[in-house]
Amino acid sequence: MSIVLKARPAEDSYFENLGNTRFVRFRRHLILCAIGIVMMYPLAWLISSSVKPNTLIFKDLSLWPAQFQLSNYTDGWNALQQPFSIYLMNSLVIVVLSIIGNLLSCSLAAYGFARLDFGGRKLFFALMLGTMMLPGHVLLVPQYIMFSKLDWLNTYYPLLVPNFLATNAFYIFLMVQFMRALPRELDDAARIDGCGPFRTFYRIILPLCLPALATTAVFTFISVWNEFFGPLLYLTDPELYTVPLALRQFMDSEGQSQWGQMFAMSFVSVAPVIGFFIAGQKYLVKGIATTGLK
């Protein structure tokens, strides 16, 4: 048995035309577009509010602004203690390192759980799932004390180091499920070819798990980019703040909130997430499906 990877270009349209009448296709697109509008609305509203003057945002609910105020962007960029580029850069550094950390450490652990057999495997797996089940609020104080003992307060270490140590059970579990779905014959074939567990992992399993890795990368990007509470607790210098911390500084329930500026900077901050998803999404689906097993 050998593995042949065969690309299938134009597969999408091949499938679309397969056994469907034109009417069925049209109806399907119509329904999908209708759902799409509901999904798009918040983004449209966000963009529209970001160019409205403060006083109009909540009075004029139409999507097309009656009055444009682009200064929300320029003012918002410089409204806080640091220019907004600092916050974007901080978030970017944390996100990139977190993705690298999660991909490396979680895939290693997942391969161990999914394809290797060793003493205590089931117990460890149950323990890992168990850590997902305890509400995070009761861990905050002990964690804070621990990181403070390590003298890691006001650094990025509490936000980053755990990611390099496979503490995110969600991603491990995700990859385990993907790896277990791969045919066992692959490992056998690799072993016959003389591959040890590491070569099998790196050469065979990882490339075939690209969708799971891409999913992990996208999910990590989104959750770390939006994470509020961790950075809030551990960072104290404004020049270390991440984007969500900065955004929350535009508003306070007791004061005169700068809504327009907040929406403008919100858009600036979701744009990279959307961009990352669009750029990365083709890897989400590059799996064994586009390949044949012969």
């Binding site: 918040p42 983004l43 989104i222 929350r248 929406f263 979701v270 997430v273 998803f277």
Partner: peptide, 10 residues
């Protein structure tokens, strides 16, 4: 999109 935006204060 909704999942991308979900965490945003806005």
């Amino acid at each position: 999109l909704p999942s991308l935006l979900g965490g945003s204060v806005a």
